[in-house]
């Protein structure tokens, strides 16, 4: 019950934070003039303006916000595209849904690849502490954590995809892959991005696991476990790993929520038709409805991820009592 109340309180606070930022963002974006200059020849600017007017773009901002919320709640309508030629007049939500699969897929693949590998490397390094295997892994981890992802993404693109021609240069379009996101062509074309994306997380998990596990391995209950007759591997798996996972597991949960948002840089380098690219074009061409919806989306994902990470500590480790003084 105590826990339940705490969770409710946290969710309430999160909703409050979200609303404040969202409203401020809405007001600030509506203060800017609507850009119709990008409407090209042959496209009717007046038609667009009429459409915008019908949606209430010339009313006071708070009234607009009311209308915006009502449309979202009643019709699931997040507005229409204005400034980006290829999405002009299209429903924002539909475009977003269409862009979501590549982003999610790449993130899921990279998480599936990175989490086990990172943890395995971390365990290996911890068990071989201060031997050469540990030094090699720790150095590599340091390099991959520090070096920005676009550097090794470019390196990957240049060597593997271009020089040796092992993998395709850009992600296959849906048509090339027979309208199937799970076909081999699609998967193969995603590999470079998945690899580039997972290096950083592998390094992160390896570092975290190693640090935790080395600490746990030297604690007294491990000595007890050995004294009562468990073999070293059994003691490690049964007792050390479980305890070491306490801080690691929440970040895994966070990563799987974060798969929705993806990485703008990686999407740009590998020209992935995902949400990140959409967000970037929306920013650069100042498309309000797209910008609002995607900003809200990113905000929500980051807030929820942070909340879940925080709460999951309490759920997986009964020793941690959340909200206790």
């Amino acid at each position: 019950m105590y826990m339940f109340k705490y969770v409710l309180k946290r969710i309430g606070l999160m909703v409050m934070t979200f609303s404040i930022i969202f409203v401020v963002c809405f007001v600030l974006i509506k203060l800017l003039p609507v850009d119709t200059t990008s409407v090209g020849v042959g496209e009717d600017a007046t038609k667009l303006l009429t459409q915008l007017k019908a949606r209430g773009y010339d009313r006071p901002i708070m009234e607009q916000f009311g209308l915006y919320l009502r449309r979202i709640v009643l019709d699931g309508d997040f507005g229409v595209g204005v400034s980006m030629p290829e999405y002009r007049g299209q429903n924002v939500w539909d475009v977003f849904i269409e862009k979501l699969p590549p982003t999610i897929l790449i993130n899921i693949y990279s998480s599936l690849f990175a989490v086990p590998l990172g943890i395995a490397l971390g365990i290996f390094a911890a068990l071989k502490k201060n031997k050469w295997q540990d030094h090699v892994i720790s150095t590599a981890v340091m390099v991959f954590i520090s070096v920005p992802s676009f550097v090794y993404a470019s390196l990957l693109l240049y060597t593997v995809c271009f020089k040796f021609d092992l993998l395709p240069l850009k992600m296959a379009s849906l048509a090339e892959a027979n309208n199937n996101y799970f076909s081999w062509t699609m998967f193969k074309s995603m590999i470079p991005a998945v690899l580039a994306m997972s290096f950083g997380s592998i390094a992160g998990y390896a570092r975290g696991t190693r640090a935790e596990l080395t600490e746990v391995l030297t604690s007294e209950f491990m000595l007890l476990a050995r004294t009562k007759g468990l073999t070293k591997s059994m003691a490690t798996i049964r007792h050390a790993l479980r305890n070491a996972m306490v801080p690691i597991f929440p970040s895994i949960v966070g990563e799987f929520i974060g798969v929705l948002s993806g990485s703008l840089v990686i999407e740009k380098i590998f020209t992935i038709p995902g949400v990140g690219g959409l967000y970037l074009t929306a920013i650069n061409s100042m498309d309000y409805d797209f910008y609002m919806m995607l900003s809200g989306f990113y905000l929500l994902v980051s807030l929820v991820a942070a909340l879940v990470i925080d709460l999951s500590y309490g759920f997986i480790d009964p020793r941690i009592r959340m909200g206790a003084r």
């Binding site: 934070t17 404040i20 930022i21 963002c25 600030l28 974006i29 203060l31 800017l32 703008l264 967000y279 920013i283 100042m286 910008y291 900003s295 990113y298 905000l299 980051s302 807030l303 942070a306």
Partner: peptide, 17 residues
Amino acid sequence: LLSSVPFMIVITLLKYH
């Protein structure tokens, strides 16, 4: 509140305002 605003939103709003 401040730390949960995504950096991208801050910079784009500043840039356009």
